[in-house]
Design a protein around this nucleic acid. Structure first.
Lengths: 239, 239
DNA sequence: GGCACCATACCGGTATGGTAATATTTTGGA
DNA sequence: TCCAAAATATTACCATACCGGTATGGTGCC
């Protein structure tokens, strides 16, 4: 993890990717201090690109820069995860609605291909590959609508919602359920059913809320809060 | 515009604000080159904070950094404006839906106060003050739901949609119409009507699309493209 | 033993110098 | 006169040095 930097390519973006992965992958513990100097020494670069990487990570909500004091890995916030989830639901459900209008046979074929990959991963019990497939599936729907701006926003929000993925027990968000929801969405896109696609996508993304309180309760030291914001009331699909 | 910088406060954020205002206010023409050195000299600071400000502005889509070549003010893109508008509609309509559930009398009172201010501005024909009131109104609805993450996203998107504001003729988006839409939203929030509030907010934000092609046609040198993306089809409320 | 004070180390923020890559201008040859 | 190639200028990017502010550990006083 320490020295994957390619020379003669911009350093700062590489650092952003590496540090981001280290944080969401829990190689850096929430609350831990990261100093510009240490990271710079570890990667064999100067402080300047490290500083720029820290700024980007702070905008993503992964670290907090406290001037003259230090930079710290942000603890996971139930509130922030729920807020990011709300943004994802708003945008991705709208995207699904538009996609039901704009989807063409090649798009449907691609989505079915991705679902097949996910099914293979689920059958193999490969939770990690299943998650990668999930990301690819959601992105593929976004590409139908051709609104890259929306997708940049969703990817930012995903940084927050994905922080709990490694912690979430498979039982809390069972792969067969998520897979069946993906299949339903594709059927509705193919049928040109905007209402149905929107409804299913909203339901699908609300699954994130099901396991969230439980995860926070299981890992109290990784979280800065445990209270769901008011706007999540009545949204949990299963009880 | 050149030297409003307060000493002993972080310089980079001040530069971001100043440059952003200069760009959306057309003090810098779209396509114009901005060099780190020039800006640094003009504000009497070093190149480093200028560089950080440029990075932030590039993330907002206001400038484009071309390595070893220069930094240029991005031309307004009809496509980007429409994409940002889609994000605003998705989030703000969902926020309105939640707000209809969460609104309390003090919130309604605040919204009515803001509408009154806007009505005064409209009666005085003060287009600029009217726009400020618009921003305050939308933000106030966001605060009802208490999802600051959503609001950060909306503010980013607003940077794009607001770039055409100075160019939009009052006739294209008449103040009385926008005002009446605001009033309708408040009535629906007060009545606890989520469907109505969402519907009206969507309609309200689609007004942006009405004048957009016309504005682009009037100022071809400020735009990099003039074609609306596919997802805007059938969304223009009036013809 | 407890508390105020100070020296020291460390942090992020800024200024400045150097470097490789690109754009522009100049120049030399046909 | 024209075109290509070399010289120059300018750019963003990185490295290094310095600055003021903050935390911390030790010391002397009460």
């Amino acid at each position: 993890m320490d020295l994957p930097l390619k020379v003669s390519e911009p350093i700062a973006p590489q650092l952003v990717a590496a540090l981001r992965q280290a944080i969401v992958g829990l190689s850096f513990q929430p609350g831990e201090a990261l100093s510009e100097k240490d990271i710079a020494a570890r990667f064999g670069v100067s402080r300047q690109p490290v500083r720029e990487a820290f700024i980007k990570l702070s905008e993503a909500g992964l670290v907090e820069i406290r001037p003259s004091r230090g930079t710290y890995v942000m603890k996971i916030s139930v509130r922030e995860v729920a807020n990011a989830r709300l943004v994802r639901e708003a945008i991705e459900s709208d995207i699904a609605r538009h996609a039901a209008r704009l989807a063409r046979p090649p798009h449907i074929a691609m989505l079915n291909r991705l679902i097949k990959e996910q099914r293979d991963a689920a059958n193999a019990g490969d939770y990690w590959r299943f998650n990668e497939g999930d990301e690819a599936f959601h992105r593929a729907i976004g590409e139908i609508v051709d609104c890259d701006y929306a997708w940049r926003v969703v990817e930012s929000a995903r940084i927050q919602t994905d922080r709990t993925r490694l912690l979430s027990l498979p039982e809390a968000s069972p792969m067969p359920l998520l897979l069946s929801q993906h299949e339903a969405i594709v059927r509705q896109l193919e049928a040109g059913d905007p209402d149905g696609a929107e409804r299913t996508m909203r339901r699908h993304l609300r699954e994130i809320l099901v396991a969230l309180p439980q995860i926070a309760a299981t890992h109290p030291n990784l979280f800065s809060d445990t209270i769901l914001p008011a706007h999540t009331e009545g949204l949990v699909p299963r009880d």
